[in-house]
Simulated assay, not measured.
Amino acid sequence: MRAFRTLLALAAVLTTTGLVASPARAADGDVAWTVRTASNSFGADRSSFSYAVNPGGKVDDTMVVANHGKTALDLAVYAADGYTTKTGQLDLLTTDKKSKAIGVWLRAGSERVTIQPGKSVDVPFTVAVPANATPGDYVGGVVTSLTQPDQEQGINVERRLGIRVKLRVGGDLTPQLAIENLKVSYAGSGNPFAKGDATVTYTIHNTGNALESAKQAVSLSGPFGWLRATSGEVPAAPELMPGESWTVTVPVHGVAPALRLSATATLTPLITDASGSTTPLDTIAATTHGWAVPWTLLLFVVVLIAVVIAIVVLTRRGRAQRKAREDARVEKAVEQAIRMKSASTS
Results as ranks from 00 to 15, higher is better:
327 D>W: 13
298 L>A: 15
316 R>K: 12
216 Q>L: 08
294 P>Y: 06
318 G>A: 15
224 F>A: 11
248 V>I: 09
247 T>M: 10
234 V>I: 02
319 R>L: 13
262 S>Q: 13
253 H>L: 09
339 R>F: 11
283 T>E: 11
271 I>C: 04
261 L>S: 00
318 G>Y: 15
271 I>P: 00
294 P>C: 07
242 P>E: 05
252 V>E: 02
278 T>Q: 08
232 G>R: 03
241 M>Y: 03
329 R>K: 14
226 W>Q: 13
229 A>R: 12
329 R>P: 05
326 E>C: 01
310 A>H: 09
275 S>Q: 12
323 K>I: 11
329 R>V: 09
253 H>F: 09
292 A>W: 01
256 A>N: 07
273 D>Q: 00
299 L>P: 05
231 S>I: 04
338 I>C: 05
224 F>G: 05
278 T>G: 01
253 H>M: 09
233 E>Q: 14
282 D>W: 00
339 R>Y: 12
326 E>Y: 09
251 P>F: 06
289 H>I: 05
265 A>C: 06
266 T>E: 06
226 W>G: 11
221 S>P: 09
212 E>S: 12
338 I>M: 12
282 D>A: 12
232 G>D: 06
272 T>Y: 05
216 Q>I: 05
313 V>D: 05
213 S>C: 08
253 H>R: 15
306 A>H: 07
296 T>W: 06
279 T>H: 12
275 S>N: 10
265 A>T: 05
222 G>L: 07
339 R>K: 15
335 E>R: 15
326 E>A: 14
233 E>V: 14
275 S>R: 12
325 R>L: 14
239 E>A: 10
229 A>T: 13
297 L>Q: 06
221 S>V: 05
303 V>F: 08
343 A>K: 14
257 P>N: 06
334 V>A: 10
252 V>Q: 05
207 T>Y: 01
314 L>A: 15
272 T>H: 02
263 A>L: 02
328 A>C: 02
331 E>T: 12
322 R>N: 11
208 G>P: 07
250 V>D: 00
225 G>K: 02
337 A>I: 13
230 T>Y: 03
280 P>F: 04
245 S>T: 15
286 A>R: 10
275 S>D: 10
221 S>L: 00
232 G>T: 04
270 L>P: 01
217 A>R: 08
305 I>V: 14
221 S>R: 13
269 P>L: 01
257 P>F: 06
299 L>W: 08
276 G>D: 00
259 L>I: 14
249 T>V: 09
248 V>E: 01
296 T>G: 04
233 E>R: 13
277 S>Q: 14
283 T>L: 02
326 E>T: 11
276 G>F: 04
209 N>W: 03
252 V>P: 03
221 S>K: 10
325 R>A: 15
246 W>Y: 07
332 K>R: 15
210 A>V: 14
314 L>F: 14
272 T>P: 05
222 G>E: 04
227 L>A: 11
321 Q>M: 10
215 K>T: 11
